[in-house]
């Protein structure tokens, strides 16, 4: 066995030793989740898409701004303090 083969096998063993399997949040490709826009609960710089007089995702200036939103699985927003579902 060449030196490279030995090193490669050892490298694979190192990776397997980490015990990393698929992330728990991984979904099957055909599983679709209905989403809705949720405003009022976004941290600064964590918003989705354009809103509130700026053009870009990640440009919200303050935490919890009533006009900044993120997309969340439908039904989540109404469970959050300060969360307001936006139409469209």
């Amino acid at each position: 066995m060449s030196n490279s083969k030995i090193l490669a096998t050892a490298a694979i063993t190192s990776v397997l030793a980490l015990g990393l399997t698929a992330a728990s949040g991984v979904m099957a490709a055909d599983e679709k989740v209905e989403m809705e826009k949720c405003a009022g609960i976004v941290k600064a710089e964590m918003n989705d898409c354009g809103a509130n007089g700026h053009a870009c995702a990640g440009m919200a200036k303050t935490d919890g701004d009533a006009k900044e939103w993120v997309k969340l699985p439908k039904g989540t927003c109404e469970k959050l303090v300060g969360g307001v579902v936006l139409e469209g």
Partner: peptide, 22 residues
């Protein structure tokens, strides 16, 4: 490829790969 990475980085390749994945 992993063979080429092993050739280039020698013994540290295992730590480099595992650490990058982690």
């Amino acid at each position: 490829s992993l063979a080429e990475l092993s050739e280039q980085f020698q013994e540290p390749v295992g730590v480099l790969l595992a650490s990058a994945i982690q």
